[in-house]
Amino acid sequence: MSIYDKLSQLGITLPPVSVPVAAYLPFVRSGNLVFLSGHVAKKGGKPWVGQLGAGMETAEGRLAARAVAIDMMGTLHAAVGDLNKVTRIVKLMSLINSTASFTEQHLVTNGASELLAEVFGDKGAHARSAFGVSQIPLGACVEIDMIAEVA
């Protein structure tokens, strides 16, 4: 099954690449690796604002991380022209806007990791880091960047 058939089956429409809000590129390709800049969680086209552990629960954070994964797939599609060229999702780095006492950053990040595995199968299994941070640009609750390998 093609990646696009899987996305359709899941009811996912890929968004266009977001315009950077600072001095960076949305992606850079070097050889067979594509590096995606950090994508912040969005809800209704605006930053998904919140802090885990302060009025925002893990389940909502997982949904935000899943939304980031969808945005990243849109950017990856723009970078390579065809998601079927992806040979491996190599690494995610996830930043979770959270209180000092919140310790479920890894579970929040699962929202992105599980979707990528569902869409790409074995090629979607990846290494990752999940960090709690005191703030993310625009007050977003989650920011994730990605490295992918392509044919």
Rank of each mutant, 00 (worst) to 15 (best):
S101T: 12
S101Y: 09
S101C: 08
S101F: 12
F102C: 04
F102P: 01
T103L: 14
T103M: 06
T103P: 00
T103S: 12
Q105D: 00
H106Y: 05
L107F: 09
V108D: 01
V108G: 00
T109E: 11
N110T: 02
N110C: 08
N110F: 03
E114N: 14
E114F: 08
E114M: 10
L115P: 03
L115M: 01
L116R: 05
A117W: 02
A117M: 02
A117P: 01
V119F: 04
F120R: 10
F120D: 03
F120H: 05
G121P: 11
G121K: 06
G121W: 07
D122P: 07
D122M: 05
K123N: 01
G124C: 05
A125W: 15
A125K: 15
R128I: 01
R128H: 13
S129A: 13
A130E: 03
A130F: 06
F131M: 09
G132S: 04
G132C: 04
V133Y: 11
V133R: 04
V133A: 03
V133P: 06
V133M: 05
S134E: 14
S134F: 15
S134T: 15
S134R: 13
S134C: 12
S134P: 11
I136R: 00
P137G: 03
P137Y: 03
L138D: 13
L138C: 11
L138W: 13
C141T: 12
C141H: 08
C141D: 05
C141Q: 10
V142R: 00
V142W: 04
E143G: 13
E143I: 07
I144W: 02
D145F: 08
D145K: 12
M146P: 06
M146I: 05
E149S: 10
